[in-house]
């Protein structure tokens, strides 16, 4: 597995914006994750490091530090449930449990068909509408109630079927 030439160029284009190449690391990781369908494969880490002239372990340190970078493949629909204080008080844990039941996966796992994954995330900054779920990079689903879970999952499945049918 290697970085595409296009991706390398895209990362290089960021260099002039920062005083040092290593400062581009976060942006580079976002780009890689985007191209790889939601995760940063470990095999790519040495290449990213070489590009930014840092040590591979620096890349792994940063990639593992931020929740939004994934070291394992995620589902086509990656459901991120905030379980920080406000969401937790408003039932986020129950939502996670329900998702686990409906999808048959636990946080950090990938459903057998590769369609879904669930993750508990840090505050999404929408405490006023807790609990909050974000699917991939899409707009937040707010005030999620336990009863919404099945509908949400069905909707995501339907969307996928429609997309495949097209």
């Amino acid at each position: 597995m290697t970085l595409s030439q296009q991706l390398i160029e895209r990362i290089r284009a960021e260099f002039p914006k920062y005083p040092e190449k290593r400062a581009v690391l976060l942006t580079a990781l976002h780009f890689v994750q985007e191209e790889q369908g939601g995760w940063v494969p470990p095999e790519l880490i040495p290449e990213i490091a070489a590009l930014l002239e840092i040590h591979p372990i620096d890349v792994k340190e940063v990639a593992s530090f931020y929740h939004m970078f994934h070291e394992h493949p995620v589902g086509r629909s990656h459901l991120q449930v905030c379980t920080n204080l406000s969401c937790a008080l408003r039932g986020a844990r129950g939502v996670v449990r329900r998702l686990e039941g409906v999808l048959g996966v636990r946080p950090g796992e990938l459903s057998a068909d590769g369609e879904f994954s669930v993750e508990e995330v840090q505050c999404l900054g929408s405490c006023g509408s807790a609990p909050v779920i974000q699917v991939n990079n899409e707009p937040y689903l707010e005030n999620v109630a336990l009863g919404d879970v099945e509908t949400l999952v069905a909707g995501l499945r339907g969307r996928r079927l429609a997309a495949v049918g097209e």
């Binding site: 040495p46 372990i57 792994k60 530090f65 931020y66």
Partner: peptide, 21 residues
């Protein structure tokens, strides 16, 4: 030699190496 780092954050923090190193 820089083989060890803290990976993760908060309660996922742990000491680790690169698999290749």
């Amino acid at each position: 030699t820089d083989e060890l780092r803290v990976f993760g954050i908060g309660d996922t923090s742990h000491i680790g190496t690169l698999e290749s190193r």
